[in-house]
Design a binder for these strands. Structure first.
Length: 256
DNA sequence: ATGGTTGCTTAGCAA
């Protein structure tokens, strides 16, 4: 089973690119983030023409997550459903290919010390609580998407310059740890030598051609999934050319 | 310290 995750940064702006990429990459499952459309505007019919079913959790203008799969997507669930703020569409989970798959869009966090930074830290704490409440570390679960956190020094091209930002500050790296400690492994980190492989490059200041990237898009899995993971990679080609997303897809291949 | 770019929506926010 080949699974991809991709922050598409507006599925309306990127629809033709996405369809062309699907025809070429042919993942079995694709988790999308930042679709930025209400559910009725998600291009489910065009995906269905290519053999993909969809479940969506979208909103206007901001956020929005989706999962598309070549097999049925069972028992979809939206948001934390923990009594807290669920107005931002950032979490969607469904079962497909015998695996519980979650598409995750962690809050960016804005400026260090801002309310958005605090919201991000709290959101990651809620993620750990949601795992405890709704999942088990001995069952097959994949949690993938845009975490807006680079976990390791080697996941950042210029760590000194990024440490004082909300993508690599110690506070957010620490806030990610409880979810990992619950029983999630970084599938990409286990398969690819550390350093020099990134998934996001800022649109500004020629970050992509300068190689100024961060690995903030993660594919995490419980032990039963990690045991089946054969390889992982980033499709850098998808970041090139005309009007790309600022993120590249991250992929993993699981043994059947 | 600011601004650099893109998308959505229409001047300004979010990323």
């Amino acid at each position: 089973m080949k699974l991809a995750c991709w922050n598409i940064n507006s599925i309306r702006a990127r629809k033709e690119r996405l369809l062309a990429w699907l025809d070429q990459a042919r993942p079995d499952v694709l988790c999308l983030q930042e679709t930025k459309v209400v559910d009725a505007e998600f291009p489910a019919a065009e995906l269905a023409e290519r053999g993909y079913q969809s479940v969506v959790h979208g909103q206007k203008t901001y956020n929005g997550v989706a999962i598309v799969s070549r097999q049925p997507l069972n028992d979809p669930r939206r948001g934390f459903d923990d009594g807290g703020d669920d107005s931002q569409c950032r979490l969607l989970v469904a079962e497909t290919f015998g695996v519980r798959v979650a598409s995750v869009y962690v809050p960016n966090g804005g400026e260090l010390g801002s309310d958005k930074h605090q919201y991000k830290l709290a959101w990651l704490a809620r993620l750990r609580a949601w795992l405890e409440r709704t999942a088990r570390p001995d069952q097959p679960l994949i949690l993938c998407g845009d975490f807006n956190v680079a976990p390791r020094e080697s996941d950042v091209a210029y760590p000194e310059q990024w440490r004082e930002t909300v993508l690599f500050h110690p506070s957010v790296r620490e806030a990610l740890q409880p979810a990992l400690a619950w029983g999630l492994r970084d599938l990409f980190a286990e398969k690819v030598p550390a350093g020099g492989v990134y998934s996001w490059w800022d649109y500004r200041q020629l970050a992509f051609p300068r190689g100024d990237g961060l690995r903030i898009d993660l594919v995490l899995g419980t032990a039963p999934v990690a045991a089946r993971c054969e390889k992982a990679w980033v499709d850098r080609e998808a970041r090139k050319g005309k009007q790309p997303s600022d993120h590249a897809p991250v992929l993993v291949e699981l043994r059947d």
